[in-house]
Write a protein that binds this DNA or RNA. Structure first.
Length: 435
RNA sequence: GGAGGGGUUCCCGAGUGGCCAAAGGGAUCAGACUGUAAAUCUGACGCGCAAGCUUCGGUGGUUCAAAUCCACCCCCCUCCA
């Protein structure tokens, strides 16, 4: 596949080559110099994550796992949470100005992101233990005048407006950019210079949309610290069909199990298109490129359903939610998709609820199917509920239901009180008869 | 402060007095086919069982009738100062 690595022992030490073999390198700032820089010593590598919500989503896993890969190769990862930059909003490749969130909200999100960032990294492994930092720490007390003089002076507006990341925004009809967002690059650049000073951090990684901000930081670090630092960008995950990655019918796939259950998370990966799955394995798992290629070869030769999606789903779910989360997810999946729903015992059904299958109670009498579909959010209006019924899209305990006057009662419940509601092919909900 | 251009249903974007719940595309959802794929085809896509009701930045107004006209207000963009 690639001529420079007929010796796999050697190549595993070359983290850049390793990433390249996984199609994970978009751009390198420093090129060969960066490779030898990384080959000669353990380096501090940083990646920033801004609090734009109370949880990270799966898009953040690529850079986060990349930090982990650097750590496994002997380098020191620095996960930065953007308590400061999150206050400003990164304009890179965004087509419109974003609304600012209050500082209370942002600091709350920062706190929620910290454990998510931490879970993938090792903070107790000696020299190259990970570090978690918040850029608010070195910006909040910096006064405006000093900042403009010390930092701002190093930036040429001429160069800043040439950056591809903001260019389209500046040229876009009907949109503009505020000075606030325009300044984002300066803040992120300053982070790099600051981390270079504090931790001797010499490498920054990020999504390919971060190229402008990373090179800005490289320039600034050279000017402020007279130090040579490097950067690498990772691919933004895209899907072969052009639709947005990381969304499902129920919305964004979050890392927070309270927002996206391990089951829903697992199902998301299981639904990966064949055209994407091998690439995603390279991005999201620690299987070697060789192993992944082997799986692809086997799948292609088998002529039946590929194994890859299942492997991917298991690996990523375990990474994000641990062994327990994975067990719960597969238990639900098996019960709903391959088992006979009617043979589930009361314990099984209870376990499904504990495992995180969406669940709600149904009032004992006068519980019509239409109301229940809406109440359980399987349909978002009565009208849609009726439509689903008419389309043969609804089943209860494995039985197709098409009549809008279907009633729930102890007689047609499983174990006297449970209902497994299904809308469409993949959406399930557990109903419990109340009272 | 001045001049001009805009704000339409999730997104893009038509619509300039009735035929508009509002073209078209995208996204999404369901069904068929399948592998809990892809592609394709069919259907749905404000709410309501229905009669009908509520929408086109906001508030008032003109009119038998407004997303479309008028007034004021809010927000965005461009250029000038």
């Amino acid at each position: 596949m690639n001529s420079s690595n007929n010796n796999s022992e050697e190549s595993s030490k070359d983290i850049i080559a390793d990433l390249q073999s996984r199609n994970m390198v978009v751009q390198l700032a420093g090129g060969d110099e960066l490779k030898s820089h990384l080959a000669t010593d353990s380096r501090a590598v940083y990646c920033g994550f801004d609090p734009t919500a109370s949880s990270l989503h799966i898009g953040s896993m690529v850079p986060l796992l990349a930090l982990k890969r650097f750590q496994m190769a002997g380098h020191k990862p620095i996960a930065l949470v953007g308590g400061a930059t999150g206050m400003i909003g990164d304009p890179s490749f965004k087509d419109s100005e974003r609304k600012l969130n209050s500082s209370d909200v942002i600091s709350d999100w920062v706190e929620q992101l910290k454990p998510q960032l931490s879970q993938f990294l090792d903070f107790d492994c000696g020299e190259n233990s990970a570090v978690l930092v918040n850029n608010l720490d070195w910006t909040k007390d910096y006064d405006v005048l000093s900042f403009l003089r010390d930092v701002g002076k190093h930036f040429a507006v001429n160069a800043m407006i040439q950056k591809e990341s903001v260019k389209q925004r500046l040229e876009r009809e009907g949109e503009g950019i505020s000075f606030t967002e325009f300044s984002y690059m300066i803040l992120q650049s300053f982070d790099f210079a600051e981390l270079n000073k504090r931790y001797d951090c010499t490498v920054q990684i990020g999504g390919s949309d971060q190229w402008g901000n990373i090179t800005g930081g490289i320039d600034l670090t050279r000017r402020m610290n007279q130090a040579q630092v490097y950067g690498a960008t990772l691919p933004l995950v895209t899907k072969s069909d052009g639709t947005k990655f990381g969304k499902s019918e129920s919305g964004t796939i979050w890392l927070d199990p309270n927002r996206t259950s391990p089951y829903a998370f697992y199902q998301f990966w299981l639904g990966t298109a064949d055209a994407d799955v091998y690439n995603f394995m390279k991005y999201f798992t620690f299987l070697s490129a060789h192993e992944i290629d082997a799986i692809e070869t086997t799948d292609k030769a088998s002529g039946t359903k590929p194994e890859a999606q299942g492997i991917l789903a298991r690996h990523v779910t375990e990474l994000a939610h641990g062994e327990q989360g994975l067990t719960a997810a597969t238990r639900i999946s098996e019960a709903l998709f391959s088992g006979d729903i009617n043979s589930l015992t009361g314990d099984d059904l209870q376990q499904l609820e504990l495992d995180g299958l969406p669940c709600s109670s149904i009032a004992a009498d006068s519980a019509g199917i239409v109301e229940v579909l809406v109440a359980t959010e399987l349909a978002k209006s009565n009208k849609m509920a009726r439509e689903f019924l008419g389309n043969n899209a609804v089943s209860v305990n494995g039985q197709l239901v098409t009549e809008p006057d279907f009633q729930f009662s102890a007689e047609n419940a499983l174990q006297g009180r449970y209902f497994v509601l299904k809308r469409g092919k993949k959406l399930f909900h557990l109903g419990k008869l109340a009272g």
